[in-house]
Each structure stands twice: as C-alpha cells, then as structure tokens.
C-alpha cells in the first residue's frame, strides 16, 4: 500500500515516516502533500504556548485525556528549539506525556524548530496537515514561548491557548507587545501559587482595555495541570470559543487568512530561492561593486529585478 493511503488509514508508522519526509524535504514530498491536501481541514487545531516551565506539556497531557474520554483522536506536535550552532536539539516534552504513548487514539511527534530562526519550521505546518489527513479530530501544537514561535502559532492554530504562571516574572506588563493579542484563551497554570488571582485580574484588565471594538473577550482559566484541576473547565471553554468562532464566521476568516499567508510565504520562498539560484553570478558581481562603492545595494536590487522582469 502506498504511504498516502496508509496515512489516510491512520497508520502511525506511515504518518511518522511522512512527517520525516517533510522535515527532510525529501524528493516528492510536495507531490504527496498535494495529494493529501483535500483530506485536510477536518481537524480542530489548538496551539499552546507559554514560557519554559509553565507546564504546557502537562496541560497538553491532561487536555488530551479529556478529549479521549469523548472518543476524539488527538495528534500532538511538541516543538522545542533547535540549537543554531549545532543543529541538534533535545526534545523532552514527551516525558510529560508518557501515559499517552500507548493510547491508540493519540499520536505524539516531537519536532525541532530546525532552521526557522526561533519560529516554527515549514515542516511543522505540513505535519499538521498530515495529522489532519490521517483522521485526527484535534491537533495540539505545543511551542515554547520564546522568539518567533509564539507568533507563528497563530498562523497554524484555530485556537491559541496562552499559558502563564504566577510569580514567573510574566506579569502582564512584562509580556512582550503583541503577545496578548494572540491568545484566544488565557490559562493561568500552577494557580495554587501565590499571585494567581492577581495575575488573572491583570490579564482581565488588559483584555478589557483592548476589547472596545468587540464584545467578545477571551476567557481566563485557572488550572493546576499536575493535579487535573481546571482541565474540564478549560476543555469546555475551548468548545465555547470554537462555537463562538463558528457562529461569527471567525473560524473561516482565520483559516482564510492562514491560507493566504501560506500561499504568500510559499511564493516568497520559491521566488527568492529561484532568483538567488538563477542570478547567483550576477549577484556575486554586484556584491563586488557594492563593496567598492561603485553602486549601492538598492540599485543592485533594481538591476536584478529588471533582469527578472
């Protein structure tokens, strides 16, 4: 049986192999992705992001178990940063999801960010498609909230859960600009710690400030993942948010903009790669000229563009 059919049948070994093909950009991976694309779009994708040590993996573990009691199939992608110096990575999120390993309806894949400059790699987007096509009802993507990956998660997920922990220095003021906007649900994990209620209030206040144009406000949920506290409430809120997004057509708007972004970024990547490949000699020559100040970089760009045209 070919790999596409096996993936569509939900065969785990084939799913895993195909994700590798995509990660390695092996020959033909684009053709395979083309063929499975029509089977995607059925899964709900949930992104979970937050600072290291905020308990994301434990949350994923507990949330998955609830989804499993509803007989939903769950695919999990756990992303950890790749070292920019060696290209290596320790992918350790699985350790907190051990008890899911033997569950038939769960598939867990750990991925490095690889060359994606702290963001999510292209392969991560494609892995989501593969899991989607394989029949998962939910796909949870867990990323460490450092650098670009937490912004990237919006491009990947229908719903984004932003995880915070009291007393970890992620007071709302300290959070990087632009982060508060990405959360569809805010999770205050380890909420038995001092300062949990204060953190909830701060988040709610900040959300009030930004929500003038829209009456919908993202829920803020307190959890203690390791003790299973608040997880049912969290999963109910995920359903609630989903319902709201579907009613107001927000989910489609979101997915449409995601597709647009994907096409644009594919275009950009391909075009640039093409240009750099086709005009490499010319570019080298122009570099020399810029170095000697005979021309400037802007003119160099214009010369290449006029050639392309």
């Amino acid at each position: 049986m070919d790999i596409i059919q096996s993936v569509l049948n939900g065969d785990k070994r084939s799913i895993a192999k195909l994700i590798t093909l995509v990660e390695e950009k092996s020959d033909d991976f684009i053709n395979i992705l083309k063929k499975i694309y029509k089977y995607t779009g059925r899964a709900i994708t949930i992104g979970i992001t937050g600072a290291p040590g905020s308990g994301k993996s434990s949350l994923v573990n507990k949330l998955t178990r609830i989804l499993r009691t509803q007989n939903k199939k769950v695919g999990i992608i756990a992303v950890d940063p790749t070292s920019p110096f060696t290209g290596g990575a320790i992918l350790g999120d699985r350790i907190r999801m051990q008890d899911l390993t033997l569950d038939e309806g769960v598939f867990i894949r750990s991925m490095g960010t690889r060359g994606a400059l702290g963001g999510l790699s292209r392969a991560c987007y494609d892995a989501v498609k593969i899991l989607d096509a394989s029949g998962m009802d939910y796909i949870i993507i867990e990323t460490v909230g450092v650098g670009q990956s937490e912004i990237d998660i919006v491009k990947l997920a229908d719903i984004v859960l932003l995880v915070m922990v009291p007393g970890m220095g992620d007071d709302v003021q300290a959070i990087k600009a632009g982060i508060m906007e990405i959360g569809d649900i805010f999770v205050v994990n380890k909420s038995d710690k001092d300062g949990a209620d204060r953190l909830v209030t701060e988040i709610e206040m900040t959300l009030d400030l930004g929500s003038s144009k829209n009456s919908w406000k993202p829920p803020v949920i307190k959890t203690i993942a390791t003790e299973n506290y608040g997880i049912v409430e969290l999963s109910e809120n995920i359903e609630k948010v989903l319902k709201h997004m579907m009613q107001d057509d927000l989910l489609n708007v979101k997915r449409k903009s995601r597709i647009k972004q994907e096409i644009i970024s594919l275009l950009t990547e391909t075009l640039i790669e093409n240009i750099i490949f086709r005009y490499s000699e010319k570019i080298d020559m122009l570099i020399e000229k810029v170095l000697e100040r005979q021309i400037d970089p802007y003119s160099a760009m214009e010369i290449i563009i006029s050639d392309v045209k």
């Binding site: 992918l91 350790g92 699985r94 390993t101």
Partner: peptide
C-alpha cells in the same frame, strides 16, 4: 545533541512497549 542530532528523551521507567 551537541553533535547535531535530535534527541528524544523519554525519562525513567519505560516499558519496552512504550
């Protein structure tokens, strides 16, 4: 890891099945 590999560490007390 330092030699460029991706390492999945699964922790203690794993059964062969896991």
């Amino acid at each position: 890891r330092d030699s460029g590999m991706e390492v999945i560490y699964t922790g203690l007390r794993q059964t062969p099945e896991q």
